[in-house]
């Protein structure tokens, strides 16, 4: 049953997938509560630009996408703040820009090829050791950030104007949150693909929010759901020979359904 664990590429995929899923779930809790959950969707579309530029210039899609997605995320916050438009509209604008530029560059690069399809639909089993290490660094940064800025983050999520009156640098907190999320999104597109990244940011936190009584419980459960979906998703994809990215997200959805039923049974 655990035969699949003996393969090196599976081990790397599991480790990287678990690390990035936990990071995404933890970040997702704050994004969901700040009603910024679709920012992951916007960022993932911008990833296409990064991948297209990388394919055009024969560089690493991951390293090329990080600065591009970070700039786009900062753009979303600026648009919402300076032009006084709703966050979802700002995400929509940047997302459309990212997707169109990405498609244009893809056409210039000679159209879709297998590499690009791998990024669109995920290829967790092609994760390199360097990328797995990067996933580890990301999770360490997320955990340290959470430990250090926990009270700032919770306060800014719960009531942004009031947090401002307590001296919390709300805009800086928001900027740091979306910058770290940008890195997580770029690393996650190898795991589940550009199309499904936002699910890793949204579904585990929403499931955890349904059945938790404390904020720390939400963080713990979201991380556990994220990790469990990667393990179960990879196992099922190996057993039934089906795409791993989509399977991981379907496991996430099953966990969400379970959490919903639990919340109804125990009247949470």
């Amino acid at each position: 049953m655990l035969e699949f664990l003996s393969y090196g590429f599976v081990q790397r995929g599991l480790i990287a997938g678990t690390l990035v899923a936990v990071a995404c779930a933890l970040l997702g809790v704050f994004l969901v509560l700040k009603r910024l959950s679709l920012i992951g969707d916007g960022m993932s579309h911008v990833c296409l630009t990064g991948v297209a530029v990388a394919l055009l210039t024969s560089t690493s899609p991951v390293y090329m996408s990080v600065p591009i997605v970070m700039a786009a995320s900062a753009g979303i916050l600026k648009l919402a703040d300076k032009f006084k438009i709703y966050g979802d509209a700002a995400i929509g604008i940047v997302s459309a820009a990212g997707l169109s530029v990405g498609l244009l560059l893809t056409a210039l690069a000679g159209g879709f090829n297998t590499d690009l399809l791998g990024y669109l639909f995920g290829s967790i089993l092609t994760v390199s050791t360097g990328e797995a290490v990067l996933c580890g660094v990301l999770l360490v940064v997320v955990l340290c950030g959470l430990k250090l800025f926990y009270r700032y983050l919770v306060s800014a999520c719960f009531d942004e104007p009031f947090a401002h009156t307590r001296g919390v640098p709300v805009q800086t907190v928001n900027l740091i949150l979306v910058m770290i999320t940008s890195v997580a999104v770029v690393l996650a597109f190898k795991v589940v693909g550009i199309f499904l990244i936002s699910a890793m940011l949204i579904i585990p936190p929403v499931a955890a929010l349904l059945i938790s009584c404390t904020f720390k419980q939400v963080l713990g459960l979201a991380a556990a759901f994220g990790a469990a979906s990667v393990w179960a998703g990879i196992y099922l994809s190996f057993v039934f020979n089906i795409p791993s990215g989509a399977t991981i997200i379907l496991v996430d959805l099953a966990l969400l359904l379970g959490a919903y039923v639990w919340s109804k049974l125990y009247a949470l």
Binding site: Y152, V154, R166, G167, F215
Partner: peptide, 20 residues
């Protein structure tokens, strides 16, 4: 959304926020 935070934690937010 159900923000899972107790009344006590809400009041705590009124104190000057600090790291940790």
């Amino acid at each position: 959304s159900r923000f899972p935070i107790s009344a006590e934690e809400v009041v705590l937010m009124g104190l000057p926020q600090r790291l940790g």
